[in-house]
Write a protein that binds this DNA or RNA. Structure first.
Length: 411
RNA sequence: GGACGGGUUCCCGAGUGGCCAAAGGGAGCAGACUGUAAAUCUGCCAGCUCCGCUUUCGGUGGUUCGAAUCCACCCCCGUCCA
């Protein structure tokens, strides 16, 4: 089924070599000449099991705030909170690590305040690992409010319109102040639809910013992940990956996907990159979190995912379940006194009915979005648990085949 | 009993001769949401044989080429006065 793509590999690999020699060389040389950040003993990654038939694998990522079993799904707490949930709730759902955001916390309350509070973990009362995004995604999502230059990005605050300059150095400074276990390099996430020419320049800019992030980052208690860009162009992806690897000491991320392109195109990019990731570190696919994409990502060698989707669709009245998507807002659940998901044993499913959840959502009661958020995160973290179990038991291929034909896949 | 004010499509509420199947809310029904400017946004919301037609603006009758809008009577509702 992937024969077309596989046939293309040799051609693409040729392209990679070409790029590495003609274009990527400078990055490799620069990287090699820098003093390598020694990975603190608090960090390590080891793969525990490989699927023999695909890229799927399980592993353990050790951080200063605990060990993470991979593949892992990370709930998003942009403003130092997973919207509507307490850290205790989030922990109960099985989440092992949270994502938070540099741009938002810089804007409010300000990274200095978080630093004074003793760092993000203390500030928000979450003792497990945290990853901060760099603000690179806001280059994409707030595209009407920013201006990109080679030096960095000038944002007009989405809150009050005030001007703020984000350079790679400043992004790292903020991330250092926040103190997450994993920090992301400042990148430019180019929009789906960008032409090859623009995608190429955005990708090159991201690499140049990566080097600046790498050089500026001095805190050995935080892992810096480079972000591979290149939009939906195979040659750019391979070039970006190849060049980014040189700066990847603890992990590497794939960004700029799931930004509007067809899923097949995203899968194609992942398939193309799959043979070229560093083996000894986690690969993080940014912004991906629908059940189908998680499974497809794991199959293509991804170890970490994050996404706002479980919490956002929850607040908008939708749940992921083992039976498929349930839009509890819909009228058919008016008198449905059964749980959201009969196979789920989360607090929400053990105690409440669809009719009640529908009532909460339809009356705009905050508990509705809260219970659905709790359930959706629980569902995804447990989906990852099922995936890990399947890999460890050498059953991932069977799991995959069964999953893609189940109602869970397309929801 | 008298004086005003009012009865509009599920609800509230605009509309005071043609541009009105009738603004705008709400409710209802559905869809979207992937490193969160999102408890947000979008669509539908009289009926049909749906580029057109039919039935709607308390009721009945009338004026007019044409009425939710004007007139007459009637029925309700509100406020105030007796």
């Amino acid at each position: 089924m992937r024969s077309g793509i596989n046939t293309g590999f040799s051609v693409l690999e040729t392209l990679v070599y070409f790029y590495e020699r003609k274009l990527g060389k400078e990055f490799r040389q620069q990287a090699d000449s820098k003093q390598k950040v020694t990975m603190d003993t608090q960090f390590s990654f080891k793969t525990t099991h490989y699927c023999s038939a695909s890229g799927a694998r399980t592993g353990e990522l050790t951080t200063p705030h605990g060990i993470i079993q991979t593949p892992v799904f990370m709930p998003v707490g942009t403003c130092a909170t997973v919207k509507s949930l307490t850290p205790q709730d989030v922990e109960e759902t099985g989440a092992q690590i949270l994502l938070s955001n540099t741009y938002h916390l810089y804007m409010r309350p300000g990274h200095e305040i978080v630093k004074k509070a003793g760092g993000l973990h203390k500030f928000m009362g979450w003792n497990k690992p945290i990853l901060t995004d760099s603000g690179g995604f806001q280059v994409f999502s707030l595209s009407d409010l920013r201006k990109i230059t080679e030096d960095g990005v000038a944002f007009s605050s989405h809150i009050d319109g005030s001007k703020h300059m984000f350079t790679p150095e400043y992004a790292i400074e903020i991330e250092n102040a926040l103190g997450a276990d994993i920090i992301m390099a400042f990148d430019e996430c180019s929009a789906y639809g960008a032409d090859h020419n623009y995608a190429h320049s955005a990708m090159k800019r991201t690499l140049s910013w990566l080097e600046r992030c790498y050089n500026y980052h001095k805190n050995e208690k935080q892992m810096l992940f480079p972000i591979v860009q290149g939009n939906v162009y195979k040659d750019l992806r391979l070039y970006s990956l190849s060049a980014s690897k040189e700066f990847a000491k603890c992990g590497i991320a794939v960004g700029g996907l799931s930004v509007g392109e067809p899923k097949e195109q995203m899968y194609e990019m992942l398939t193309v990159m799959q043979p070229h990731y560093p083996e000894n570190m986690p690969r993080y696919l940014m912004g991906v979190g629908s059940p189908d994409c998680l499974v497809e990502g794991v199959k293509r060698g991804i170890d970490m995912f994050d996404c706002v989707i479980p919490t956002r669709i929850a607040r908008n009245g939708t749940a992921y379940t083992t039976q498929g998507k349930v839009v509890v807002r819909n009228g058919i659940y008016k008198e449905d006194f059964t749980p959201l998901d009969p196979l789920c044993d989360c607090y929400c499913c053990r105690n409440f009915t669809k009719a009640y959840l529908r009532h909460l959502i339809n009356t705009d009661e905050i508990l509705g979005g809260r219970l659905l958020s709790y359930h959706n995160i629980y569902y995804l973290t447990h989906l990852m648990g099922r995936i890990r179990a399947a890999i460890n038991a050498d059953r991932f291929e069977e799991f995959y085949k069964s999953f893609i034909t189940s109602p869970e896949y397309k929801q």
